[in-house]
């Protein structure tokens, strides 16, 4: 076999394998619809219902930067009283976080979402080890909250809870959320990541709406 033939065959094989892999992969993912919405009915919201500016935050409770941003987002809401609300959506990117967000959603069903979230953020180092969520530890931590714990353990496994999280994950993928936290202010993403960019975006939206 001539060397040039071998070389060209090599290129051909790799190219063909690449094209087939792309086709297979895209075929597998074609079921994902293009419809993407930043907000979801029933997602946890903080702030007045009639606020014209909505910050939608896709987050992972195990993400350190999300915990760092939590007070900053609150600060933004205080800066524009009555005009800004924040909606939290799940983007469990860390290993093990899928169980933890289920617990959060179950707490949300009891109206204890924010207490649970704050507790998880504040004590992140107790249940996140090497960027991996430890759902059992997170559950143990939440034991200290005044919740209906029997119901919480049942609700974690409800299909509705899974459905809500699946919806958030699918919307997150459609919106190309690849890192957390990701913010959308009235549907608009940040031009680049940073607190200043977020606060500028909120200011812009408030100026437009009021």
């Amino acid at each position: 076999m001539s060397r040039k033939f071998l070389f060209i065959t090599g290129i051909g094989i790799i190219l063909l394998a690449f094209i087939i892999a792309v086709a297979l992969y895209q075929n597998q993912n074609s079921s994902l619809s293009g419809a993407s919405s930043t907000q979801r009915q029933g997602a946890p919201v903080k702030g007045p219902e009639n606020a014209k500016v909505t910050i939608v935050e896709f987050f992972d409770p195990a993400c350190g930067t999300c915990a760092d941003f939590y007070p900053l987002v609150k600060q933004l809401m205080d800066q524009y009283p009555g005009k800004v609300r924040v909606m939290m959506r799940y983007a469990p990117l860390h290993t093990g976080s899928d169980q933890v967000v289920k617990m959060l959603e179950a707490a949300h069903q009891q109206g204890k979402y924010w207490e649970t979230l704050e507790l998880l953020f504040k004590n992140q180092n107790r249940w996140v080890v090497n960027h991996v969520s430890q759902p059992m530890r997170a559950r143990a931590l939440v034991n200290g909250l005044a919740l209906d714990h029997g119901r919480l353990d049942i609700d974690i496994n409800l299909p509705e809870v899974s459905r809500v999280i699946q919806q958030d994950i699918e919307d997150g993928q459609a919106l190309k959320v690849q890192a957390t936290p990701e913010f959308f202010v009235n549907g608009r993403p940040m031009p680049s990541f940073g607190y200043k960019q977020l606060s500028d975006l909120v200011k812009e939206a408030v100026d437009e709406a009021y």
Binding site: G64, T65, H94, N130, H131, A179, P181, S192, F193
Partner: peptide, 13 residues
């Protein structure tokens, strides 16, 4: 180092 979910992706993930 503690610089997990800033802009990008931790390399340990």
């Amino acid at each position: 180092d503690m610089r997990p979910c800033v802009q990008g992706i931790p390399c340990s993930e």
